[in-house]
Design a protein around this nucleic acid. Structure first.
Lengths: 335, 335
DNA sequence: TTGTAAGCGTTATCAT
DNA sequence: ATGATAACGCTTACAA
């Protein structure tokens, strides 16, 4: 089954040349006579020769690969961001390793192992602690952080959360709400934490406490139920998924959205446009987050010291906050 | 910035032993005296030594990595499947490369390059032609196919489409529909092709022609508009995204779903439960597809000749076909 | 128990 | 224009 692979010596033998010549022909560099090239190419073809990645990596002293460590691939957010990274990497001729931590312990070992196979590493979100990040840095290859704040000198790319959170909270206030509640766990990620901070900042001493919930529809439903029990009339949720849970909690209580209870989300997943009423939320530039992080990593590898980047996020007003629904045309223009 | 990395010689020097001993200690195999081990471990720690992946791969004659080639990461389907692959790979101690083709040409080169870095490769969907697959096989490392039919002797894992397509079509027929239309492009993937075949088979000479559309909401809307113009009263869509497009086409025509027009999807994305009316669709075991393919690949690498696998898909009846909506409790039991 | 030395498959520097 | 040959960093007989 596993065909024995032809190596550069086999090709050289077959073509009656040295391995150096084969290497030159293979990579299309250096001086080779047309006739020799012809012979070598034929041998390569006949033997179906492909250079070994590890041999090449060893000789080049570079793996030609990068890695990304992410918490989970569930939901549209992570996959979109990773897709951005992937496209940028491939465009730069690099292969991309992915490693999901899935809340696993011992993932530091896995990250370390991954690190030994790449020329650069992206660490996304709350996968490993700042401590581990510090330990990793300087260890082997350059790091870039994604969707988390910089750690010491290690730059990161993330989307802004504070300003949109304030804006959204003030928007709910402007709708006349007095009892607002925050659904989400500030401890779960730096993004969630910043959204909570914006909420609290806009509300001052009226902020109360967050109704803690991990990301996820079921958790959102539970937390929202608790919030509703306190008499809240507006729910600012840290993710669209949580908001969907809140929708269900509201329905279970026979509350109308937005008349009885206003709900907002975060991320602008496809679903946000389709639920009824359409969800007011915040759009993050997911793809761009990935692209920008890949570029940041390249710069670091090249020896530059790029600054941390914060990309803009935009509040998308739809109907769940109490505003008039957007027309289809207005929706289109958002795409 | 890029710290020079300590290699096995540096550690050996520091500990005053040979590189063989360092290697033994590092991997925890072979006889080493407690005292020596101690010294070596200290040196490893002080120098922050991690074995080079490429050096190791070269000496071991195995990369310790696998790869997956996928068409795109958009939508929940691909990311879920890839997540299944990733988890299984990591559980088996393998790293995972991802390569998206995004409809690129010249991706055969990229695949070839990837192949030279891995011990096994998963090829998903319509990324590369059967021809290229054949050329790849036997070239270097074992292959496993995912979401496409086996090619020659190369086994694959996929979800059944024919039976559910027939079942769904008959269900629409049972609702009294006489003019059914298929939305989707049978040429876009083997899955779509099989769904069309099931549709056509159940309908016999009443099947007509498919209203071709790539996967995607916008395409679905266009194709559905054309289908509606022919007087169709039931639309079987090859994906949930297409079905969402069909929803919009129906709304634009002021048609009620399901009273005036029945619509079904495929995939059971999260959205399917939230649109109104809830979407009747077909659920594929996405995660399991990934897991099963990873296992298949491992078996092949181990020298076995595993058979192709077809996993079951289930029709999920909701409201868009004309049935009574499921209660929340019934929904839960589906999860 | 430890060390020596021969690969593993490339690239790159010299000679020729 | 081509060919020896020495890295690259590791694993693994085989010797001591």
């Amino acid at each position: 089954m596993t065909t024995v692979r032809a190596n550069i010596y086999a090709v050289a033998d077959r073509a009656g040349v040295s391995i150096a010549t084969v290497s030159r022909v293979q990579r299309g560099i250096g001086p080779v006579s047309a006739e020799t090239r012809e012979r070598v190419l034929r041998a390569i073809e006949e033997l179906r020769y492909t250079p070994s990645g590890s041999g090449r990596a060893l000789a080049n002293q570079r793996a030609g690969a990068m890695g990304i460590v992410f918490p989970d691939l569930s939901g549209p957010y992570y996959s979109e961001v990773i897709l951005g990274v992937e496209e940028e990497m491939v465009a730069a001729g690099q292969s991309l390793f992915i490693l999901g931590t899935h809340g696993r312990d011992r993932c530091a070992e896995l990250v370390l192992d991954l690190m030994s196979r790449v020329d650069g590493l992206i660490i996304m979100g709350r996968t490993v602690s700042d401590e581990v990040v510090r330990a990793l840095e300087g260890g082997r290859v350059p790091l870039a952080l994604l969707a988390r704040p910089p750690v010491d000198g290690i730059p990161s790319v993330r989307a802004e959360s504070l300003r949109p959170a304030i804006e959204l909270t003030e928007h709910l206030l402007a709708h006349g709400h007095e009892r607002l509640a925050f659904i989400g766990d500030p401890a779960s990620s730096s993004d969630a934490e910043e959204r909570w901070r914006g909420f609290a900042q806009a509300l001052g001493d009226r902020a109360g406490e967050p109704f803690s919930a991990a990301f996820g529809e079921a958790e959102g439903r539970l937390a929202a139920t608790r919030a509703l029990a306190t008499g809240a009339t507006a729910l600012l949720c840290a993710s669209d998924e949580l908001a969907l849970g809140a929708y269900r909690a509201a329905r279970a209580r026979r509350l109308r959205i937005p008349e009885d209870i206003a709900i907002t989300g975060w991320d602008d997943i496809q679903l946000a446009r389709f639920v009824s009423p359409a969800l007011t939320t915040v759009r993050q530039p997911m793809r761009e987050l990935g692209v920008a992080t890949a570029r940041l990593l390249f710069e670091r590898i090249a020896g530059a010291e790029p600054a941390a980047t914060v990309l803009a996020s935009d509040v998308v007003i739809r109907a769940s906050c109490g505003c008039e629904p957007l027309s289809d045309e207005e929706e289109e223009s958002h795409q």
